[in-house]
């Protein structure tokens, strides 16, 4: 469980996130959504212990994250970054093995299989497409979790470069991690994905939390309009909400 209290990150005179209180519970997938610049990635970085806090605290399983060593943090949570700049010619399998000493060749292959990348195990990472790289990075992150029961999983836009099928695979992985009693936070841009896969949605706007609750509550049209400054149509589908732009006001009357 990760607990944030009064989390504030400032860079110079700009406040990226201000006074955020947030609890990430084990066994729950929390989606963090909001417009560009709302502070989603900054908040995730703060939860991961990456960002220096200007005020507030983040504790992971009761310990203040800034007092933990890097090795302790690595056992308490794994983080999938938005994109990775790895330019050396490691193979996909080698990238997964960078997760830690405990990741054997077999374990690495098993996680490549989980993200449907086993056929690429011996391919060099820089030669792969954006979506393929993202899945390999996800396999690395899962491999890091392997040795640490109860460690949290933090994913920053894991579906951005993926087609619908692979979006589904990634979010199913997030759900499975929650089923293993991990706290899972996912930054998402796709509101329908958030509504359908998360137990809880945190809607951010201008560095603060605008709504925090079940998808049907946090993704209400009026809240979305306030956060995004544009109007949405929120429909109830069979598998959850369907959220799309409302183009009504653009049509010639």
């Amino acid at each position: 469980m990760i607990v944030a209290r009064g989390v504030t990150v400032r860079v110079g005179p700009t406040t990226l996130v201000g006074g955020i209180d947030l609890d990430l519970y084990a066994g729950e997938v929390t989606a963090i959504v909001g417009p560009n610049g709302a502070g989603k990635s900054t908040l995730l970085g703060a939860l991961a212990g990456d960002r220096k806090l200007s005020a507030g605290t983040v504790t992971v399983r009761g310990l203040p994250v800034h007092l933990m060593s890097f090795a302790e943090r690595a056992r308490a949570r794994a983080v999938l970054p938005q994109r990775s700049e790895l330019s050396l010619a490691f193979t996909a399998r080698e990238v997964v093995q960078l997760a830690g000493e405990h990741v054997t060749r077999e374990l690495a292959d098993a996680y490549l299989d989980t993200v449907e990348m086993q056929a690429f195990a011996d391919r060099e990472y820089p030669s792969l497409s954006g979506g393929e790289r993202q899945r390999i990075q996800l396999a690395r992150v899962l491999a890091q979790l392997a040795g640490s029961p109860g460690a949290a999983l933090l994913l920053d836009e894991p579906t951005a470069a993926l087609d619908p099928k692979h979006q589904r695979i990634v979010l199913a992985i997030a759900r499975r991690a929650a089923a293993e009693d991990r706290a899972v936070a996912v930054v998402l841009h796709d509101l329908t994905l958030a509504a359908r896969w998360a137990d809880r949605v945190v809607l951010m706007s201008q560095g603060t939390v605008l709504a925090d609750g079940e998808p049907t509550l946090a993704l209400a049209p009026d809240l979305l309009a306030r956060a995004y400054h544009t109007s949405f149509e929120v429909l109830r589908g069979v598998g959850g909400l369907v959220i799309a732009h409302d183009r009504a006001h653009e049509r010639p009357s």
Binding site: R73, R75, S84, F90, L98, G100
Partner: peptide, 13 residues
């Protein structure tokens, strides 16, 4: 090689 942030994530000081 993963990046400095990512290296910290996997426990490198």
């Amino acid at each position: 090689a993963l990046g400095e942030m990512e290296a910290r994530h996997v426990g490198v000081d």
